[in-house]
Amino acid sequence: MKSKIILPPAKYTISFLCFLIFACSISGCSRKEKPLPIFGEREVSGNDTIYHTIANFKFVDQDSSEVTNDTFKDKIYVADFFFTSCRTICPVMKTQMLRVYDSIENDPDVLLLSHTIDPEFDTVGLLNDYANRLGVNSKKWHFVTGSKEEIYKIAQTSYFATAMEDKSEPDGFIHSGAFLLIDKEKRIRGKYDGTKEEDVNRLLEDIEKLKKEDDHG
């Protein structure tokens, strides 16, 4: 007899819980995730907004292969600026970039691009050795060198990253430790401090967000 009295409320409780879960999932779906920002100046021409994009470039990577915009066609990529003999923030940046590498290693949609800002010293051979010592795949993570002017120019005008020579600095260069997240339309969608673990955690989340954005068109 007792069990009969207890059962109906239990049934109500279960259906109420079901309703709650259902309601939560509905609101979860309808609550749209905030899209990632698009960095830089924008122009409106007619009904179209023209966003800031990464300019065309042509560099050479650790395999002596040419790396251009086409290398990153229909790819999301993360870019940074460093040099191999840097003893200050670069090793930390590379440790963090290695985390990014590990998370996207098997993801065909995402690539990495590290520019040396000391191309006179960082030859193709040296970059090759550096990448091998990090144990990374050259098709996934390109370490590029080229003309110093071109690299500094693209750093400053396309990626809004600081990169310049300064003999008064301990290593001879000033550069930011920024990681830049670039979408398939060559637009900057995120800027992260590559020396901070938490910032790089945010980058990893944003890469996933960006991929979802592409999935939805």
Binding site: P91, V92, K94, Y130, L134
Partner: peptide, 15 residues
């Protein structure tokens, strides 16, 4: 720790 890491694990075959 920049190069040898906080946990002393080094970095690849670099450090």
């Amino acid at each position: 720790s920049n190069c040898h890491q906080k946990d002393g694990s080094g970095l690849g075959l670099l450090y």
